[in-house]
């Protein structure tokens, strides 16, 4: 049996399970970041298409391409900050609930299934713990991802022909 001990929602498990868990968390995190990146790229491209004539006007006013890229990157940073704050707020609510109430697996699955028999230590109630560094890590990572994701679509927008942009051809 791989489970060494479990009691009252706190379990100590052998290291292979922890490693698998860490890999799973890393995998989920990567997928979440990828979805976020696609969302931001999509947002910047749509914004650039909607504001085509505005970009053309920026060029007519004499803005250089890198200055227009900078405008879009600042906008993406704003999206990153607001998204990060919203994510942290939702995370705070979720973790608070897990810390105070926990997730009662017995209540969810009832007594008819003994997960321990299958080597899965899901019994009783699992409680969350506060991990404040993760909040700041995810917040800044979100901003970083937003900025990085905005570079290519912003360059694409800034590189457009000004005549085409102004007259929306």
């Amino acid at each position: 049996m791989p489970i060494e001990a479990y009691s009252g929602g706190v379990c100590s498990v052998s290291s292979p399970i922890v490693e698998i868990e860490m890999q799973a968390v890393g995998g989920i995190m990567s997928i979440v970041l990828l979805i976020g990146m696609v969302g931001i790229i999509n947002n910047i491209i749509l914004s650039a298409l909607e504001r085509k004539s505005e970009i053309g006007m920026m060029k007519a006013l004499g803005m250089r391409e890198w200055e227009i890229v900078f405008v879009f990157m600042v906008e993406a940073t704003g999206i990153g900050i607001f998204g990060g704050l919203a994510g942290c707020l939702l995370g705070f609510i979720g973790v608070s609930w897990l810390v105070n109430n926990g997730l009662n697996f017995t209540a969810i699955y009832g007594d008819w299934l003994d997960w321990a028999e299958y080597g899965v230590p899901l019994l009783d109630t699992i409680y969350g713990v506060w991990n404040y560094p993760t909040f700041s890590y995810v917040f800044f990572l979100g901003i970083f991802v937003a900025i990085v994701s905005s570079i290519i679509p912003a360059y694409w927008a800034a590189h457009k022909d000004p005549v085409e942009s102004i007259y929306r051809r």
Partner: peptide
Amino acid sequence: SKKELAMTRRYNIGFIFQSYNLIP
């Protein structure tokens, strides 16, 4: 060059368009 053209537009040329092209 592209940069010099942008600078020429910035300092020497003003544009007025039919559809105004203001930043909303």
